[in-house]
Every structure is written in C-alpha cells, then in structure tokens.
C-alpha cells in the first residue's frame, strides 16, 4: 500500500484538519465527534440539511457544505457509517427552528445509525425528515437484498433539496423535493481497478489487466458481473441500457446527465466517456438539459466511472441552477 497519509488510524482526523485549514473561513470542523458545519449555522427559519456517510468518497459530503447545499456533514471512518452521536450533534448545530432533513444513502449501516439519530433528535424536540437515496440499478431491489444502494443521485439530491431549503421551502416540501430527485434518478458504475482502504492495506478485490467489474458500489465492494474490458463506447452502453430501461427514460424526457469519476480515472477519460453517454442519450431521444462531469462521489483511488441520469421538471431545473457556494460545487454565488 502506497498512500499519502501519516497513519491509517488517523486518516479521517488528518483530512479534516486539512479541510479546516483550507476552508476554515466558511466551515466549522469539530473533532469530537467529527462534523463539518457551515460557519454561519444555524440559519434561523431555514430548514437544515445534513448528510453523512463513510469517508473515502470525497468531495462527498463535507465538500458540499455551504450556502445552497448542505448545512452539515458527518464523516465516518473510511467506508464506515458515522455514528448517531455525530448525526445528533450535526442536527442540533443546523437546526434553525424549521426542522432538519437527513439525507441518507441506502446502506444498512447508514440507515440504522441515522434511524437511531432521528429518534434521539425527535426526543430533543427537533423535527426530522429522512430522504433515502437508492438509485443504483445494479442492485436487484427485492426482499432478498438490502435494497438498491444510494450512489450518484445523492449529490443531485443534496444540491436540489439544498436550493429548495435556501429558497425558504418548509420541511415537508424540502423532503418531498429530495425524494422526487431520488425517484427520478438512476445510476450504475463500472470499475477498472479496485481500491485499498488504509485500514486493510490490500485491494478490496482483484481484477485482471483486461477485466472490468460492472455494477460496482462505492465501497470497493465487488460488482455484479466481471467481463473483459471494452471500449468507452461499449462500457457506456453497458451502463446506459439498464439505466434507460429502469425508470424508464422515454424519448422527449428532459434530463441531467452526470458522469462521475471514482477517484482514479483522469478527467480526459471521463470526457471520452461523457461523449458516449451524450451520444446514447441523444439516440434515445433524451433532451440533455444539464450535465455534471468530474469526481464528485468517489471510492478512494478506484479507477472507473458511474453514470447518473436524472429526469428533470421545471422546478428541479430551477433549483439545480440556483446559486451554490461550497468547496466542491460553486456557481452563481
């Protein structure tokens, strides 16, 4: 294992010290427990938004804390859900009296810990609504699995629901808009290499030089199928077909296309990939209204990419375009 770290045990704390050093003017970082909070929180009368999850997916979630997006993030250990005491601390820090939305990716650990945190917050008189993201079409959604994973759409939920909260919408409305984004978004990813968590020191799976893993999650968990690597055009088609069929996306739909890098794939390849995604979307009759290309929800140094398509309506588009001012996403502000 070759990593730019001091010690596997202190990676999260050391990275948060960096976040504090870089963005201390706009973010407040606490270390016991770990939270990243807007420096001006709580905003009186505004619905608070928090999210959280294992570390290793940067810039998600700490990079999305700021005006127009999240009010706080709770970083867990690498690929490990944060704990209820962190979530409670973040909830209290951002509660401006209008209630708090918890944006939770559908993983057993995240769900269980956020459930406990919501119970604790409610016991302290804070209204909480939970928005669960579960957009990964690689996972069969049935009684026999933990359900679909929350992946790329989480970034879009945080942006759009964050704009709705900034616009003064109430707790139920902000949560409804977040759920609408999730309901209209679908994602799937491919890995060209595994990733190595600092604690384990070994790759999470072994891939041959000529193999890819289709349908990977964001924690180095293996995917659904392993197959020989194809061209960017072939891989784009391999992911786009199940995404398009699942919602389903129909000719004439207005969409946002999000090509996300998993951390170890250079931007030049992501743009090669995006060209194929845009071509396939056009062939399907989709109207590509907006896009996002880059590393936004990563899996340490994994090589690979995911595609997220979001079906837009006027309201979602307006909130997507609204100003946002965070370390990792910033426009119009």
């Amino acid at each position: 294992m070759k990593k730019l770290i001091n010690s596997p045990d202190s990676v999260v704390a050391d990275a948060l010290r960096g976040v504090e050093a870089a963005h201390g003017d706009r973010l407040r970082v606490t270390f016991d427990p770990f939270t990243v909070v807007r420096a001006d929180a709580p905003i009186s009368g505004k619905v608070g938004l928090i999210s959280g999850g294992g570390s290793g997916h940067e810039p998600m979630h700490g990079g999305y804390v700021g005006p127009g997006m999240l009010d706080a993030a709770c970083p867990g250990e690498v690929f490990t859900s944060p704990t209820p005491d962190q979530m409670l601390a973040a909830t209290k820090a951002v509660n401006g009296g209008a209630g708090v939305v918890h944006i939770v990716k559908n993983y057993t650990g995240d769900v269980l810990n956020f459930e406990m945190a919501a119970d604790l917050a409610k016991a302290e008189g804070i209204e909480v609504e939970t928005v669960l993201t579960n957009d990964d079409v690689a996972v069969e959604d049935s009684l026999y699995t933990a359900g679909r994973r929350g992946v790329g759409v989480t970034v879009l939920v945080e942006k759009i629901a964050g704009a709705a909260a900034a616009a003064g919408r109430n707790l139920q409305e902000v949560a409804e808009i977040g759920r609408r984004v999730n309901a209209n978004g679908r994602s799937m990813g491919v890995a060209l290499s595994a990733c190595t968590t600092p604690a384990s020191g070994r790759p999470s799976f072994e891939l041959g030089e000529d193999e890819v893993e289709i349908g990977i999650g964001i924690h180095g968990e293996p995917g659904r199928f392993r197959e020989p690597i194809g061209s960017a055009a072939q891989l784009a088609s391999r992911l786009m077909t199940p995404i398009l069929e699942d919602l389903p996306f129909r000719s004439g739909d207005r969409v946002l296309a999000f090509v996300n890098g998993m951390g170890g794939t250079p931007l030049i390849e992501l743009y090669v990939f995006y060209a194929e995604v845009a071509k396939l979307a056009a062939e399907h009759g989709l109207k590509l209204e907006r896009n996002l290309v880059g590393n936004y929800i990563t899996s340490l140094e994994m090589q690979g990419a995911s595609i997220t398509l979001l079906k837009l309506d006027d309201e979602l588009l307006r909130y997507w375009d609204a100003p946002v001012d965070t370390p990792a996403l910033r426009w119009g502000a």
Binding site: G76, T83, T108, L112
Partner: peptide, 12 residues
C-alpha cells in the same frame, strides 16, 4: 459501541 463502531455493527 453505538458511538464509536459505525457501520451496521455499531447499532446492532
């Protein structure tokens, strides 16, 4: 355990 483990194992 609830405040330090995280993951699913912490709450369980």
């Amino acid at each position: 355990l609830i405040s330090t483990v995280g993951g699913a194992a912490g709450p369980l």
